[in-house]
Nucleic acid binder design. Structure first.
Lengths: 201, 201
DNA sequence: CTATTGTTTCAGTAACTACTGAAAATCCAA
DNA sequence: TTGGATTTTCAGTAGTTACTGAAACAATAG
């Protein structure tokens, strides 16, 4: 409880002894809030809900490790919500748990590399959402192979459906490969795919 | 009402005189249903809800123009839902209205080219979701230019936030360019981006 | 015009998702 | 141990989105 105990941190709250993590300057604060709001709105793109996106934006934009209470205070959300959303973000792997020497409280910080975050998210969404569809399509194509259909194989409707399935399969296979490149190569900075693209076009 | 009136279509329903559009063979039907279900589940990726995705899947996989009643019957949805979802798909531009000679009823058919559909969707989502974020980020960066901050410009927190904004801006600009390529070039078949990628990797 | 066929709209409701706040569980220091 | 600090869980609820079905509307034929 006493301020005297804290020796490593320059600024602390007298009440709690916890380092003051949030920016005081209103100009900076406004910039960060703008970013957080827009990032939250865009959450849909990433398949992440608004609150989760905002928490992530907060951790990313400040570049500081923050604890649950910091997040609650700054975003005005409940403890339960903060706790669950932070856990979910950890599960995604785009933020990490952190401990401060001699402190019990857990802190969270965002990955700093946007490319890495994107890779993580892309890989997971590909696995969850694209792979199953591609598998279904392949099964559908198998089921319509002439060998499995007898004379029906030449039916107009069957032929049309087969063509459509083929078109979709080609598309998804190629898209998958592109994803794979992002995912496999991106560790930091521009990855191979992007370099190739920017050079070629 | 009488079957005799219909001269162009081989199969009609005796009750309505409307061409029978739906496949009768159960094997084909099952394949199509599998595809439709999975495509519906994947709707989230595209930012399209389940029903809309299913309607689109149905039109795509059959390759036939279908009318509102066909869609209602096959997917077991209400008229209102079918009407609104079909309109929304038309607004997106991935299905089109169609009229049959001498018939009052409207039909709908899906674009056949998956790459074109993808381009349309990507272009629209970029415009709606990425562009505003990129603009916000650029504004944030401007607001933190040293000229606008005086001595605060060298504040640690400000420097960190600026770095993060720069990282994000680079990422989104490049991503935007990639999107642009898909959108600009894809008219049919593999577009330039994909060809470049597949060759290079 | 009226009857008929087909389409769109929309109020009400069902289904779903996100959030809160408090209780329970966990953790660590003494 | 026990006690206080912190985190997690979860039942209940608020808020949101999707869907229905019926009524209003539109278009055409007779």
């Amino acid at each position: 409880m006493s301020v005297a105990q804290v020796i490593e941190e320059p600024a602390v709250e007298p009440e709690t002894g916890r380092p003051v993590p949030l920016p005081v300057d209103p100009k900076l604060r406004k910039v960060q809030d703008d970013f957080i709001r827009k990032w939250g709105e865009m959450g849909a793109i990433w398949g992440i809900n608004r609150t989760m996106a905002e928490i992530h934006a907060l951790l990313y934009i400040t570049g500081l490790p923050l604890c649950t209470d910091d997040v609650m205070d700054r975003l005005h959300i409940s403890r339960g919500n903060a706790s669950m959303s932070l856990r979910a973000l950890c599960d995604w792997g785009i933020i990490r748990r952190m401990h401060r020497r001699g402190e019990r409280r857990e802190y969270f910080e965002s990955l700093g590399d946007v490319w890495e975050m994107f890779s993580i998210i892309a890989a997971e969404r590909k696995r969850r959402e694209m792979d199953p569809v591609l598998e279904t399509i392949k099964n559908c194509i198998k089921a319509l192979e002439p060998a499995n259909l007898g004379k029906l194989a030449k039916d107009d409707a069957v032929v049309r459906t087969r063509e459509r399935l083929d078109g979709m399969e080609e598309f998804m296979s190629v898209t998958n490969k592109v994803f794979q490149q992002f995912v496999g190569n991106a560790k930091s900075g521009l990855n191979k795919v992007v370099r190739v693209l920017l050079k070629a076009l």
